[in-house]
Design a protein around this nucleic acid. Structure first.
Length: 231
RNA sequence: GUGUUGCC
């Protein structure tokens, strides 16, 4: 069943996948949650979030209740739509339902706040997650660094870089690129170029995203000559 | 190989 549902989804036949799933569950077999979650995620990523909701409701009647991953997928979908009120509400609802948040959901929520320029809210979530006993990981720090860089608070972002290193995580290409993005948006394009050297010294290879960030940033701030040198 | 992070 799992493979069938996946195959149908990948082929864009989510209706067929849904039918099979429903048929199995109606026959009294409780399918694996990974299968349901795969289907839910497919809908969320294809702008069919209402369908995902409806199906979750429908499945509750079969004693197939959403788990932590299901909620995470839904919360992420709301975050992508910048509906943080909804995302937070669903997060609270999830806790009511007895699902204990893990760092994935916390990271997801933080991303949502960062995307709408609410880095301080993200920082609150960061504090909550620690109080809750979740250990921040590379994604946690990268998300916060992205969030603060985005709103021009590069110094605040650097504080998290320090925290990250203290926690034993090495900055990666995402960390550096997020910081460069913030610098470029903040008329500190030259500083971003310095960071490029620094990351290479630390043995971190820039990728195409890094170069795109720099090229975009440098050309926007009239440093076309420097941009040309990147080639 | 069910979910979370960076440019346009």
């Amino acid at each position: 069943l799992d493979l069938l549902v996946r195959a149908f989804c990948i082929a864009g036949k989510d209706e067929a996948a849904q039918d099979i799933f429903k048929e199995i569950i109606t026959s009294g077999v409780i399918p694996d949650m990974t299968t349901l979650n795969f289907l839910i995620r497919y809908w969320c990523k294809n702008r069919k979030i209402n369908k995902a909701y409806a199906f979750i409701e429908e499945m509750k009647a079969f004693d197939c209740k959403p788990d932590l991953v299901t909620y995470s997928i839904m919360i992420d979908a709301l975050c992508d739509r910048k509906n943080m009120v909804g995302a937070k509400a669903l997060f609270d609802w999830m806790k009511e339902a007895g699902c204990k948040p893990d760092r994935y959901v916390y990271n997801t929520l933080m991303k949502g706040y960062c995307k709408i320029d609410k880095a301080n809210e993200a920082k609150q979530v960061f504090e909550t997650m620690k109080e809750d006993g979740c250990v921040p990981d590379v994604v946690t720090f990268n998300t916060l660094i992205f969030g603060f860089s985005k709103v021009g608070k590069v110094n605040e972002a650097k504080k998290f870089l320090k925290l990250m290193v203290e926690a034993g995580h090495s900055p990666d290409v995402v960390t550096y690129t997020s910081l460069m993005n913030g610098m470029c948006r903040n008329d500190k394009a030259i500083e971003a170029l310095r960071l490029l050297d620094e990351m290479e010294e630390h043995g971190c290879k820039p990728d195409s995203w890094t170069y795109n960030t720099l090229l975009f940033g440098l050309s926007k701030s009239h440093h076309l000559y420097q941009a040309g040198k990147l080639f």
